[in-house]
Structures are given as structure tokens and as C-alpha cells.
Nucleic acid binder design. Sequence first.
DNA 1: CAGAAAACCAACTAAAACGATAGGAATTGA
DNA 2: TCAATTCCTATCGTTTTAGTTGGTTTTCTG
Lengths: 150, 150
Amino acid sequence: MKLTTKGRYGLSAMFDLAVNYGKGPIPLKSVADRQGISEHYLEQLIMILRKAGLVKSVRGAQGGYMLAKKPSEITVGDVLRALEGPIGLVDCVLEQDPVECEKAETCIMKLVWEKIRDSIIQAVDSITLQDMCNEAERRKASAHNYMYYI
Amino acid sequence: MKLTTKGRYGLSAMFDLAVNYGKGPIPLKSVADRQGISEHYLEQLIMILRKAGLVKSVRGAQGGYMLAKKPSEITVGDVLRALEGPIGLVDCVLEQDPVECEKAETCIMKLVWEKIRDSIIQAVDSITLQDMCNEAERRKASAHNYMYYI
DNA sequence: CAGAAAACCAACTAAAACGATAGGAATTGA
DNA sequence: TCAATTCCTATCGTTTTAGTTGGTTTTCTG
């Protein structure tokens, strides 16, 4: 019941792009450096995110990547779905193209998996990149106040 | 973000034992047959559940396994934790022995993973094996009524 | 125009995890 | 005694993961 590094690294990178939103294209190398990820590996992940319509790219020198929408319009769920596939702990209750088993009609377990899936969906869809940026700002502010008044 | 077969098979088996609760020890072979699982593989899983204190065993002929507590006292979370380990999509927010990263203090992502983890915990801990049995009974009853009154 | 910076792309690979299987030893009821 | 059953250890093929390698193409800048 773990995320792969795709999901982790991918959300890191998206958060980084969200923090730098509005500053033009951000070179992937700088994202990889800040987040401590192999640039070449991150390249593969960002390609997935681009094909999912979550980031845009600008080629050539001074190029890079940027969010395709406002941070407030991208949820953690969008990112995780793009990188990890449809949400669901078990194939028979995936959001997209669930793999039905023979006894799906009567399966009591299916009910359990659906309930867990729905609670995950609720959580990931309720957090946007903007929320994460806001929290980062809030922390920076309170750290500043602390240093100022000490 | 998938469960392994440990979690799936394990909950199947536990549900089977719950349905047969109070009937004495149930041979693992019969559980494996009903649930369509390799007996030998299930053996490894039930051993884990036994060591976690969720099932008891009776050795020898006419032996088998039974729940160590009432179905109402065993949650889906108990079973999944025993088989899949502490809950959490990412190592740094595991319920037990989280693997702290260097920047845990300032990590915004951690907040996200915690929120997802908590929503999973809430879901799995709110469902008992008894709930599953009740649902199975309810379905059997309504199927019966349907056939009776048609 | 040259060269550097960057995205884009395809193929390969080592290591780990997964999902078993194999083969037996120990226990116990009939 | 013997058949049923739990208990235990080891092995193993396949798939997935988490990269690495080695480029090609595009575009800005000096």
C-alpha cells in the first residue's frame, strides 16, 4: 500500500513548479536539484505530466516547464492519477476501467475496497497545489516572526 | 497504490473465518477452496495473522483455524496492518516507525501524505468483520425474499 | 552563425518485490 | 497407526521499480 517514487517525486516537482508559478519556464535541472531527484529520471515523470495536460514545456535555451493551469486548479489527485494510474487499492474497484471479477455481484469485499477508495479520493481531490503553497507561505511567515521577535 | 495479494487474500480468508465463526476450527484447505486461493500460499498469510494474534490454530487431524476474537472486535484495519504493514502511502508518515527524512520539519508534502493516511485509517478502522457478515446476511435475505415473492 | 542550454526520446539494466511452489517435520484425533 | 492438519524453511520465475546511458532536436544568445 505504498506510492512509488513516481507519485512522490512527481508531486515534489509539481509543488516546485507551483511555488515558481508565473516566473516563466523553469529548467528541469533546477527542479531536480532543489528536490534532490535525478534529473534524467524526473524527465520521464514530467513527460507523463505533460501528456496528462498538467504542465507545459518550452524547448530550447532558456526553456523549461511550467504548470499548464493555475495552482488552485490542480489537485494532488490530478498529479497522482497521472503518475500512479486510477485510484483504488484493488483492481476491481479502480475509478477507471475496473477489472471486474466473476463474483463481483455478490462480493462483500468489493464494498470494503470501494469505501477505502472513496476516502482516498476525497482526500486527494480536496488538496490543491495552491493549498500547499499557502501552507509553505504560512510557515515562512511564522518563522520570520519568530526570528524577528526573539 | 495497490494492495498486494497478501491483503486481498488475507481479508478473504478472515471474512471466511468470520462467516464460520463458532463452528470450531476450520481447515485451511476448505478456506482456500472457497476463496479460490492456493492453500500453500494462504498458509504463509494465515501464519502472519496468527502471529499478529488475529487467529488461533488447532493442530492435528480435525484441526484448523478460527478467529481469535469475535468478528465485531476485528477490523479491516487490523487485518491489513498485519499483512501489509503500518498504514501510510509514504515511509515518512507510517503509523509505526516512520522513516523521517532530513527536511521533515519543513516538508509540505508530509502534510499531504498525513491527510491521505488518516483518511485511509479512518476507513479501514470503521469496518469490522461483523459488518461484512451482516452485509452478507442482508444480501442473502433479500435474495431469498425476491425468490419467495416472485 | 556558433555554441550552449534545454527539451525530447529510446533502450537498457540492476535490484527488489511479488506470488507463489517444493518438500518436508511435528502434532493429534479417530 | 495413519490420515489430517498445522508448522517451517528454502527456492524460484516473473514483473516492477528506479533509475542510467546515450543520444537527437529545438531555440535563445553572444
